[in-house]
Design a protein around this nucleic acid. Structure first.
Lengths: 212, 212
DNA sequence: CTACCTTGTCAACCAGCGGGACGCACCCTG
DNA sequence: CAGGGTGCGTCCCGCTGGTTGACAAGGTAG
């Protein structure tokens, strides 16, 4: 920032080189194209050709980036999930002094944002055989693993002294609960989050410490 | 937006195809790389190799995108200028009912934002032969033309009934005045803008109409 | 059962980038 | 003024990466 002559650029956020950025852009474009398509048709009715041409690129390029249709669908779901997990991170960071409240706020944020998201609604209504719903349920292990890892990282950042095994167990359980509540909503988000907090409270106190 | 089955996607902001987006990204990366470099060295001390490698790309790719060093420098200046012109647009749109005030606010916004911009300060202090300053002064025609065209479009959007020739004259004059005031600042932005408003007021009333 | 469509793969083709080298102009120095 | 150094602009060659066209396999509708 300073215009002083002798200042060293140092490690100041090294600019992402073009090739890497281009690859990222390609994937983003595919995801965006898929999202557009999903607004009018179900996933089972969208062909790989559709996605590729909507991205302005050939089908083979799509297959090179993602090996198969399922792989792409999975990557897409995870990509969309990032958005919600970002919100979760934020919610957690606002309650670093109170683990129970953090979990409650995080779960509530997730349920609320996901519940209101039009794309999520579409995915949930698409329960056919070739749809995307199985990707988070019957074939949902990759998503669960990914979300668990990400949530684990978030928690460990907030409570570094907590035992890793317990944090991971907590994270995975929360992920599974969250997915369940999305696919089969019970009460309103606040109530659901409160009940989860009650259920997991003792374990949270034990794992993360009741005083942080 | 609606999830209704029969809705037609229509002309809803067609997604930018990847190849085009990639090209845009390449240019952006070059500009960003140049901006980074300019924070530590003058333009005359930055080689094309520096820019290319900072962008993570070969020198030839840079030469293919921009024919020569000067062309790149010009494109860069214009690219940076976009930022300020955006602010000008905004200022104009807030005073559609009062042409004089619009011009004053626009000029003031430009002078203020450009005057505070660290990059502009650097460019201005780099008055050597190989620097970028000539691009907006002695060899500044391309920049003047570009900025005039853009400003003309902005004004015509706000006052469609104004005679084009007068609008263009006004735009070009404003551009030249603005550049002059940037390179050789006189009073504070508010005073400068006020004086310009006084100077051009009669012409503005005549061209754009005193009541819009 | 047939006709059609999509998936996933392959091979041949082609544009575009990377790397290396060259001539040229310029500047600096002795 | 001569010589070395440096950066610009260009050319050429090798290769990565996207495109095109085609194909077998599988599933589905008629």
């Amino acid at each position: 920032m300073t215009a002083t002559a002798g200042t060293i650029p140092a490690v100041a956020t090294t600019r992402t080189p073009y090739p890497e950025a281009a690859r990222q852009l390609l994937r983003e474009t595919f995801f965006g194209a898929a999202r557009d398509q999903l607004e009018s048709r179900a996933w089972s009715e969208i062909t790989m050709s559709d996605v590729a041409s909507a991205a302005g690129v050939s089908r083979q390029t799509l297959y090179k980036e993602f090996g198969s249709r399922d792989e792409f669908a999975q990557a897409f779901v995870i990509h969309e999930g990032e958005r919600f997990l970002d919100g979760v991170d934020e919610a957690v960071k606002e309650h670093l002094d109170d683990p129970r409240a953090a979990v409650g706020a995080a779960l509530q944020a997730f349920l609320r944002s996901a519940g209101e998201d039009p794309l999520v609604r579409i995915l949930l209504s698409d329960d056919g055989a070739g749809g995307m719903l199985p990707l988070v349920t019957t074939q949902g292990m990759p998503v669960v693993h990914w979300a668990t890892a990400r949530l684990t990282a978030t928690i460990e950042e907030g409570w570094p002294q907590a035992p890793e095994a317990k944090v991971e167990l907590l994270a995975e359980s929360l992920v599974r609960l969250a997915i369940s509540y999305i696919t089969a909503p019970g009460d309103a988000p606040e109530k659901t989050a409160a009940k989860a907090g009650e259920l997991l409270g003792p374990f949270i106190d034990d794992a993360l410490g009741s005083v942080g």
